[in-house]
Amino acid sequence: MTAALKLDFSEYHLSVIRVLDKADQVILGKRPQLKLSLCCLLAQGHLLIEDIPGVGKTTLVRLLAKSLGLQSTRIQFTNDLLPADILGTTVFDPERRAFHFHKGPIFGQMVIADELNRATPKTQSACLQAMEERRVTVDGVTYTLPEPFFVVATQNPLEQAGTYPLPESQLDRFLMRIEIGYPNEGAEKQLLKGEKRDRLIETMEPILNPEDIVKIQKVVDDIHCSDAIVDYIQRVLHHTRTQSAEQWGLSPRAGLALLKAAKAWAFIEGRSMVLPEDVQEVGVSVIAHRLNRGEGFRGGVANQKALEVFQSVQVD
């Protein structure tokens, strides 16, 4: 590592910590979730938040967007939403007598996809395809999405009528899946007493800008990952493939995701190398939604299974 990079490293690390601290003051008692979300973004992955309404999913995303200086767009998914509503359409401009592409809400740096599972599979897959490829093709023309580009999808876990659960292959596109959970007692009281969260977010000053984030992502990518870690991750994958009878094992893509997320976590921890602990910290969020196949998705069970995986794989 060169000296310049090292300097960048500590500087960026400090600002990332500042983002965390600031966000922690707004959303109370949710530091682990904030940290995981941030980690996911730094690892250039998309995030799936799954929880009941009203625990602050959207607030969390908006807060992150604001403090990272990202321009955020929001798509509320409903079952009559069409792909064109997300991606954009080509319309005829009579004044200029030309067709003009009207960009949809997907063209944002941080896209909040609210209640993704309410949309029809067709719409879902349009959105997910854009996530995967980071570009959009409409009427034969390809448009590149802005850089950085994050999708944070939220999903309601309650089995409600009129939802279309995401298929397994689509779940795999999300680097991480987190739950927010109820606030603890103290935080809840403060929330009730305190200022309105929206106002706090409105008045917040961004700490980083998009260019910084792209650079940080590069730094994260350069974090050292030793053979010992590669072995460890491989053992985790192997374990899921061989040790349990009822579910399918993790795909190689899951292994890559685990590695990427662990690197980002190591960065947030201020380390230039990945430790097994980093893998374990991000592990549950990364693999839980990939483990459950075929039997429908149940968050709690999946988390427990993922946790068991990491508890039984040996660290050397």
């Binding site: 097994p276 990491f310 039984s312």
Partner: peptide, 8 residues
């Protein structure tokens, strides 16, 4: 513990 990382 078998799955305990070095730092922990």
């Amino acid at each position: 513990g078998p799955s305990e990382g070095p730092q922990a």
